[in-house]
Lab assay of single mutants.
Amino acid sequence: HMTFVALYDYVASGETDLSFKKGERLQIVNNTEGDWALAHSLTTGRTGYIPSNYVAPSD
């Protein structure tokens, strides 16, 4: 899985969403939902949907 870094803070709007903080590292599990991606946080160990425009690929 590619690793991504959060560009902004995001507060989950539902139970299936994943909250994260700017700078948090995430792995995209499934990116077939258009503007949303299923992601796993390497920081918190949690998995949920995130807005895909809130993250960018990290080196």
Rank of each mutant, 00 (worst) to 15 (best):
G48N: 01
K22N: 02
Y54K: 05
S19D: 06
A37N: 06
F20H: 01
S19C: 05
H40C: 14
D9I: 04
V29E: 08
G45I: 01
D59E: 12
S58Y: 14
Y8K: 07
H40Y: 14
S19G: 08
R25C: 14
E33D: 13
V55K: 04
Q27P: 00
A6Q: 00
N30E: 12
A37H: 09
E24M: 02
L38P: 01
Y10D: 00
G23T: 01
K21W: 05
E15G: 08
G48C: 03
K21I: 08
S19H: 04
G34H: 08
Y49D: 01
G48D: 01
S52C: 15
H40V: 15
L7R: 05
W36F: 08
P51I: 03
Y10K: 01
N53I: 10
N30H: 12
N31G: 14
L26T: 00
V55P: 04
A39N: 00
Y49L: 10
Q27T: 11
D9S: 07
E33T: 13
M2I: 12
Y10N: 02
M2N: 10
S41P: 00
P57H: 10
E24Q: 02
Y49W: 15
W36R: 08
I50D: 00
L26W: 02
L38Q: 03
K21V: 09
K21P: 00
S58T: 11
G14L: 08
Y49G: 01
I50H: 00
K22V: 07
L26P: 00
N53Y: 11
G14D: 08
A37Q: 11
D9R: 01
A37C: 14
I50T: 00
I50S: 00
R25S: 08
L42E: 06
D17Y: 14
T32N: 10
I28N: 00
Y8H: 08
Y54H: 07
T32K: 10
G34M: 06
M2Y: 12
G48Q: 01
K22W: 03
R46I: 06
K22C: 07
E15Q: 10
G34D: 07
D17K: 11
A6M: 07
T47H: 07
H40S: 07
T47D: 05
R25K: 12
N30G: 15
A56T: 13
S19L: 08
T16W: 15
A12W: 03
A12R: 05
E33I: 12
T47G: 05
T47K: 08
M2P: 11
Y10H: 05
L18T: 05
Q27E: 10
E24T: 01
T44W: 01
Y10L: 02
G48Y: 04
K21S: 10
S52H: 08
G48L: 03
V29S: 08
S58K: 08
V55W: 07
L38R: 04
V5M: 06
R25V: 15
V5C: 08
T47F: 10
T44S: 09
T44Y: 02
A56N: 08
S13P: 09
D35P: 14
T3D: 07
L18N: 03
D59Q: 12
W36C: 08
S58C: 15
S41Q: 04
L7S: 05
Y54S: 09
V11I: 11
S19Q: 05
P51Q: 04
T32L: 15
T32W: 15
E33V: 12
A12P: 06
T3N: 07
I50M: 03
E15I: 10
I28H: 01
T32A: 12
V11R: 07
T32I: 14
R46Y: 07
H1L: 13
V55Q: 04
I28F: 08
Y54T: 05
F4S: 04
